[in-house]
Design a protein around this nucleic acid. Structure first.
Lengths: 296, 296
DNA sequence: ACACCAACTGTACGTCATACACACCACTCT
DNA sequence: AGAGTGGTGTGTATGACGTACAGTTGGTGT
């Protein structure tokens, strides 16, 4: 019946695109994926992502745990679909402006709204580039906002990626500051632990309340900087000026793989001695224990 | 012996600051926290954070699982300490420049080096504002870099927070693009699924290779924008010009709590009907099943 | 009519974090 | 010196979790 089916695709992705093969034979299905995902989302909304277990979802639906596996190959699939459905489609009003900056700000705020409604989305680990319809739709509408901009394709995508990251980060921070009591307590504890000598620049900042929940701090500091940065890039490009290159990092004169390996080595080396010492300590303990065991 | 002890502090934090109470009585301790944390880090370095279990760490050390609980109240403590130790102290060379922009770039690259060496740090959930020595030291040195800047305390902290977020995000992305084969495969799959009509702006971008692993794309696009944004902010402040306010969002005229609640409601409302429908469907199924059960 | 396969159930397994009870030990106080 | 106490590492147990596997039942294509 369903002409679209593709076994080569991860089941979750296939489901998200609605191209999963649906079998014809056998008893009629009593459940469906939307129902399952929806139940899972409801649980996550109410009790957080960690409360979403195959069993909790199944019981919410009145089925057994294992029945879900007829619709989803693994819990990861379910999580992926939750994220996709939870994000939803971006409000089209985002693109209803001719000012790219206004548009991106709308985009950003819309994303933050989604995160406010479904905070658990922030707990879903990022697996790779977006490849499900709603997630791509968010990217799409962002690119539409940038359409009259002189940026090239790569830069547009990079700009949207940047904004995505910023929105996630901001939402993350906001969530942490949700419980204000904890913040105050943490700040107080911090004050007793850190000394002005240890942290000459940080201490006064905290004393000045820079760590408190946003009082008069310009609320959207982060996005504003990001948008300013994009604006500068746009201005540079449209004035034909090449973006001034960052000063090269002596350790970054390699291809990416190479570089990461290098960095890894450098840090590893730095930690090497300490590690070796501890390894030895560990071995010494192990030996001592063996000896003790033998004696006994 | 240890004059510093504070029961009111979460054990993990106390340990990080080295102010955890160390008991006098009883048999000599065979283990110590550094050893445990170090073993855990080694496991995470080699097999990822998910491979770190109380049992795996204990066996690596040659002790029983439960013995670790004499040093750590819960696995979360261990994770917190792993993060703290994994971050390490920031290289002091970061502040050895009089140019804030250069300094922040060094800061950023140093953080990326750490993430390259310990990718699992990205998997450690952010719990709140940094409150352990090394994490604060990173913030501290960032503030030092900004010391000759006209920014006020809050803005400096906000700027560092922004840069932190960007570095995490960039590292996250970089990690995802590590497995290039997968990326290519995903892009190919995507091409078969999305149509140019559905995604008029995105489709050409992908076709143009905007999704491919960084080829000629300016490598540090994100940071460059962020630094440009901070530069603009600095310029504005030092020229006495007040930062131009973002256009107010009609939904953001409330205090933060209020706003989040509001947003939550809006999205919830939007989804309400769908949800209700599905809830009803679910109930209908449940009833049908009950009836069936009774008949049987 | 029959064969087959699919939908849901039930049970089982391995892993995990962690509670709790033990046996043992060293410092402290008498 | 001897007892008491609170600490050590160990062993066992529990409940939650994801999911493999083996039914049992029921629809559909032949």
């Amino acid at each position: 019946m369903d002409p679209l089916e593709d076994d080569s695709l991860p089941r979750g992705i296939a489901l998200a695109w609605g191209v999963a093969a649906n079998p014809q034979r056998g008893p009629k299905r009593e459940l469906n994926i939307e129902l399952i995902v929806d139940a899972a989302i409801q649980i996550a909304d109410e009790q957080g992502l960690s409360a979403v277990s195959m069993s909790s979802v199944a019981t919410a639906l009145g089925f057994t745990t294992m029945s879900l596996y007829r619709y989803v190959t693994a819990k990861d699939d379910l999580i992926l679909l939750m994220q996709e459905v939870g994000m939803g489609a971006p409000p089209l009003s985002i693109a209803e402006t001719s000012d790219w900056r206004d548009g991106l700000l709308r985009w950003y705020r819309a994303v933050l709204d989604v995160f406010a409604a479904h905070p658990w989305i922030l707990d879903v680990p990022i697996v790779g580039a977006p490849n499900t319809p709603n997630n791509l739709a968010w990217l799409e509408i962002g690119l539409e906002v940038l359409k009259d901009t002189p940026l090239d394709q790569r830069s547009r995508v990079a700009a949207m990626l940047l904004l995505s990251g910023q929105s996630r980060w901001e939402a993350q921070i906001a969530r942490n500051y949700m419980r204000e009591g904890e913040v105050a307590a943490a700040n107080a504890a911090l004050a007793t632990l850190m000394t002005p000598e240890q942290f000459p620049y940080l201490y006064p900042a905290i004393a000045a309340g820079a760590f408190d929940a946003d009082a008069d701090n310009p609320f959207e500091f982060g996005v504003s900087r990001v948008l300013d940065g994009i604006a500068k890039n746009i201005a540079d490009v449209s004035s034909g000026r090449p973006a001034p290159p960052q000063p090269p990092d002596p350790n970054r004169e390699f291809a990416r793989d190479e570089h990461v390996k290098k960095a890894r080595e450098r840090v590893k080396d730095a930690e090497g001695k300490l590690r070796d010492a501890r390894q030895k300590e560990r071995e010494a303990i192990a030996k001592a224990r063996e000896r003790a065991a033998k004696l006994q």
